[in-house]
Design a protein around this nucleic acid. Sequence first.
DNA 1: CATTGATCATGG
DNA 2: CCATGATCAATG
Length: 222
Amino acid sequence: MKRSPPVTEQALLARVNDLAAKTINQIANDLNMFVPESLLKAKGWMGELIETALGANAGNTAQPDFVELGIELKTLPIDRFGKPLESTYVTVVPLLDRQQFSWEKSEVYGKLKRVLWVPIISERHMSVGERQVANPFIWSPDHHDMQILKTDWHEIMDMVALGQVEKLNGRFGTYLHVRPKAANSRCLTNAYAEDGSIMQTLPRGFYLRSDFTRKILSDVFR
DNA sequence: CATTGATCATGG
DNA sequence: CCATGATCAATG
């Protein structure tokens, strides 16, 4: 039932290339998985399907999906022209980290340093099963993009450390921005207040803007 | 119509 | 609650 993880990057590429051009129905049928009518009540389903198909093994730990390879898997919904339809979730924002202030040790860096992108043509009018895998590829940020990601991360984490998490909103950040990441708007978690005490606030996540993922695709396929 | 803010499912 | 997987949907 569960597939073992690929041992090499080459093996992972071979597996994911087998998915290229397949419909979601084909992939799910091969795995004996049921395809939901809608993703409204199954928002993570696409990602879980591709994880299963490829043998990802990180579970819900805060590590890249293919732990030994250090590669993060991201499905990316695109329209028929290859334009991303959504932002891409990266990881939760650590609200109580005043120490571990190193970009290279951050979970954002750990996940974005090497990513297997699996674009899926997922226009809303298409049924889930008819949606189709496009051209997957493994990517790392170039130096320029890495600097921008690092700067975004530092600016956001500085605000968190200064107790300004509630001043953060989706307008901050060039590539990486911060949005709510919770079951609903009543969820609360601890964070620093501006006076250094502990306050309660809505949990947040780091997301990649779709402008940036659009650029990634155009850099690769130009 | 793009973007920001809100929400859904699951496992530990 | 916190982490994973994201998409939905109100708003400007």
